[in-house]
């Protein structure tokens, strides 16, 4: 895998679909693109069957723009809404059986490191809250305890969206859903706490109503996973179908939920801070000068 895999075999370019040609000629491969430039280059995400106005779709779109090296990135997903889009992008996608995604990603990451030890390959898991916190719970936690170097992103719509509205561990207490008619009986699971306890080097919560912040946390999480250890992002990506949010109010809902109970949080180990500041110039993680510390 390298920049070459996205190029045409000489002489075949003219037979390729327009979308493919645009991707090779004006895609983000080998360039630095940012969320503020969308609309001026060809994004790697193609058309897909996720619902109109779905916040999860927006998040996946932004995440794919933010991959630091898309030509060296592999995504891993599983059953659930998100894979309908994640699989329709110009980066390799591996489908793990429902709940197996972090186990599959562990093997994949290790294999890639044996095969391409000299060049980093970024493995990014994106899966739903049900796939990650319920059915795949053991594999998720084990990959973290084992310090597997890849990024785990929970697309947290607080419901099993793809199968019509069952509660998940990430649904809020008392929430009534189509298939939880009496309301959920226990609290939303603290996956952030578990990510920290099990040794993730970077943990963040984010809501897609702030596209530049999504970009920033994805970049950091992927870079930290390259060298330091596992990273976890938990993204609120509402399901407008199961939570009956009108599509033109999805961002209003995101804003309200962000203010009420899904605030931006970021946890980063000292080692990860040092790595980001030394290698990638993240000044905010440089140690504060002694004088400035005293003044505080």
């Amino acid at each position: 895998m390298s920049l070459d895999y996205v190029k045409f075999t000489p002489g075949f370019g003219k037979f390729m679909p327009k979308e493919y040609r645009d991707m090779v000629e004006h895609g983000p491969f080998g360039k630095k693109v940012s969320v503020s430039q969308v609309g001026t280059f060809k994004e790697i995400l193609e058309e897909h069957p996720m619902c109109a106005g779905c916040a999860m779709t927006l998040f996946i779109r932004l995440a794919m723009v933010a991959f630091p090296n898309p030509e060296d990135t592999i995504t891993v997903g599983t059953a659930g809404c998100g894979r309908l889009a994640i699989s329709q992008a110009a980066v390799p996608f591996v489908y793990g059986n429902y709940g197996d995604q972090n186990g599959v990603a562990s093997g994949l990451t290790r294999g890639l490191r044996l095969r391409f030890g000299d060049r980093p390959k970024d493995v990014v898991v994106m899966a739903g809250d049900g796939g990650m916190a319920d059915i795949g719970f053991a594999q998720t936690l084990h990959s973290w305890f084992r310090k597997e170097k890849f990024t785990t992103i929970m697309l947290d719509n607080e419901v099993y969206g793809n199968t019509g509205g069952q509660e998940s561990g990430m649904t809020n207490r008392n929430q009534v859903l189509k298939m939880a008619p009496l309301g959920k009986k226990f609290e939303k699971m603290d996956m952030l706490g578990m990510a920290k306890v099990s040794g993730c080097a970077y943990v963040a919560t984010v809501v897609p109503n702030n596209p530049r912040r999504v970009e920033s946390v994805i970049k950091k999480a992927v870079l930290v996973a390259r060298e330091i250890g596992p990273s976890y992002i938990q993204a609120y990506t509402s399901c407008n179908i199961e939570y009956a949010i009108p599509t033109d109010k999805v961002m209003e809902d995101a804003k309200t939920v962000e203010t009420d109970r899904y605030k931006f949080t970021e946890y980063i180990t000292d080692e990860a801070k040092e790595y980001l500041s030394q290698l990638y110039g993240y000044k905010e993680y440089l140690p504060k000068p002694a004088a400035a510390v005293e003044k505080q």
């Binding site: 503020s36 969308v38 609309g39 790697i44 779905c54 916040a55 927006l58 530049r212």
Partner: peptide, 18 residues
């Protein structure tokens, strides 16, 4: 302002002509 381009859930849909 280039805001809507960043918020459309669909990729390659709202584009920008300088």
């Amino acid at each position: 302002c280039k805001l809507c381009t960043q918020y459309c859930p669909e990729a390659n849909t709202i584009l920008y002509d300088n």
